[in-house]
Design a protein around this nucleic acid. Structure first.
Length: 513
RNA sequence: GGCCCGUUCGUCUAGUCAGGUCAGGACGUCAGGUUUUCAUCCUGGUAACAGGGGUUCGAAUCCCCUACGGGCUACCA
């Protein structure tokens, strides 16, 4: 399987099933996907479940469902399969042991028998002296490992089944220089690095070993991941050269920051500020705590993807609305920024508004129909569709439709008395009663007729149109909002309009002094 | 503390690599217009090169320092 020459690009998204994927992770997946499609390469989903202790039931299913919803597709991976299966690291366990031993044989790694408690103790001691304990060249010869211990003792320990880890032996006194597609040249001195554990005492590899081995074996050409991995890039570079492998190209994405204050976006921010940080709703299997998702909040996945694409990347033109296909065409890593982006919920809403306005009416009608059904309201689809047409422009989400249109489906049970104070004159009830009679008498009950009648009536009464329409709106809607009033009348129908005038007049008379 | 990365309107950003338009756009916000209400919509305004040194005829752009912000610093990923 090794060293098959390949010219196509291969990228992977490699989440760890330790909880729900937040939008930063979705963006990383998205950028990988866009890069793969832009370059005509392959997109791979690998699950990095090498930490048994942090495994969270349902997390893997959540991740795949989220990516599915976002429209991110995989050419290879845990579900899609592929020539490099298996794609779940826990199913590749034996592979890592083999490569750890190869490093051991090459003298680039060593066994370490230090108990976790011993190391913890050393860290505490160092802290008290205001130092930081690092397992590095300066101390490794004094610790319990195969570099310091006599050979026979090492063999004895191994034979007796003593727990051990395998650590990477960081070369001394070298300056490492490497390239990042987004950041350019980065240099680090090996003296600042520590001998990271590659292989744990439970028989599993750490992230560092597993990701380098798998990326090599799976012929990954570009590693596109979050900036939090930048500090371990030197180790990974050393690992590739330790194995004598060709390195993939690296691109470290900037982080997504909180909307206000400092620090990276966290789950708490969403709860506190009232916007989702997860693609779909997540229920914590241990605490039962629910975190809201974009999907449930009423976002279109296309809007979320568009918003995420522009959070850190830009096309260099003034275009802001992109379909997935357009993103495939335009995306490039060269146009990803270096600095962290603050997440802006207001702009996220704006994106959704745009997609809402442009969404086919049929789809909106269907979605809104569902919401109505949950409220026990059933109306014929044509009626719902007409309502949708009237409220879509004034909404950001389908979930807003109800607050914008409930009066189309039910008679108000209360009327806004603040508006009464402002718009209600002494003659208003009389005016409304007289207009009620006009309604009763008028011909075809259609918007244009209603409007004409209202105008004629107002003129004849010597009143402004507003003096009639505002109170009438209050009667029908319950407050002062909503679309064209003549249209509302038509949709409600003659009987209902008259009934609402009557009810409103009774209510208002009873509730004002 | 150490190491690494970053810094243009309130926010996302263009412009930086190849120094030379009143630093452009979008979201937000404010004002005006449209209107029977509230929105939408249209028009206009607001607002930024973190600071200091250099280099240069000329610096947001190149170099250095400082400040601030972030990430990492586990037998987590």
């Amino acid at each position: 399987m090794e060293n098959i020459p390949t010219s196509e690009t291969r990228v992977r998204f490699a989440p760890s099933p330790t909880g729900p994927l937040h939008i930063g992770g979705v963006r990383t997946a998205l950028y990988n996907y866009l890069f793969a499609r832009h370059t005509g390469g392959k997109m791979i989903l690998r699950i990095e479940d090498t930490d048994k202790n942090r495994f969270v039931p349902g997390a893997e299913e959540y991740i795949t469902a989220s990516l599915e919803w976002a429209g991110i597709r995989f050419d290879e991976g845990i579900h899609a399969g592929g020539p490099f299966a298996p794609y779940r690291q826990s199913d590749r366990k034996e592979i890592y042991r083999h490569y750890a031993e190869e490093l051991l044989a090459r003298g680039q790694a060593y066994y370490a028998f230090d108990a976790p408690e011993e190391l913890e103790q050393k860290r505490k001691e160092a802290e008290q002296e205001k130092r930081v304990f690092t397992y590095d060249a300066s101390v490794r010869v004094h610790l319990k490992n195969s570099l310091a211990l006599p050979e026979d003792e090492v063999q004895q320990l191994l034979k007796s089944g003593s727990p051990f880890v395998i650590r990477f032996k960081i070369p001394e006194n070298e300056t490492l220089v490497f390239q990042d597609i987004i950041r350019g040249e980065i240099s680090v001195h090996t003296a600042t690095l520590d001998d990271k554990v590659l292989f744990k005492s439970d028989g599993m590899p750490t992230y560092h070993l597993a990701n380098v081995v798998d990326d090599h074996l799976m012929e990954i050409t570009h590693v596109i991941r979050g900036e939090e991995w930048l500090p371990s890039l030197p180790l990974h570079v050393l690992l590739y050269s330790g194995f004598g492998w060709e390195m993939p190209l690296f691109a470290h994405l900037p982080l997504i920051l909180k909307p206000e204050g400092t620090g990276k976006l966290s789950k708490r921010d969403g709860d506190r500020l009232g916007f989702p940080v997860f693609p779909i709703e997540w229920k914590d299997p241990f605490t039962g705590e629910i975190s809201s998702g974009y999907r449930e909040a009423g976002y279109f996945s296309e809007a979320m993807v568009n918003m995420l694409a522009l959070l850190g990347w830009n096309p260099g033109t003034e275009q802001e609305i992109f379909s997935m296909d357009e993103l495939f065409r335009e995306f490039s890593l060269e146009r990803v920024g270096k600095s962290g982006s603050r997440f802006d919920p207001a702009k996220a809403r704006w994106f959704n508004h745009h997609y809402l306005v442009n969404c086919p009416t049929g789809e909106l009608t269907q979605r809104f129909g569902k919401i109505l059904a949950e409220k026990g309201i059933r109306r014929n689809p044509d009626y719902i569709e007409r309502v949708v047409e009237l409220v879509r422009e004034r909404s950001d989400f389908v979930n807003d439709f109800w607050t914008q249109s409930h009066f189309f489906f039910e008679t108000p049970s209360a009327w806004d008395l603040d508006t009464v104070r402002k718009k209600w004159k002494e003659e208003t009830p009389g005016l409304l009663r007289a207009f009620r009679d006009v309604i009763l008498e008028m011909g075809e009950f259609r918007a244009e007729n209603i409007k004409a009648e209202a105008e004629a009536f107002a003129r004849q009464q010597g009143a402004g149109l507003g003096q009639l329409m505002s109170p009438l709106r209050l009667c029908l809607v319950g407050a002062t909002f909503g679309p064209d009033l003549a249209l509302i009348c038509e949709m409600l129908g003659r009987e209902e309009v008259m009934a609402r005038i009557d009810k409103a007049l009774v209510y208002i008379a009873a509730n004002t002094v």
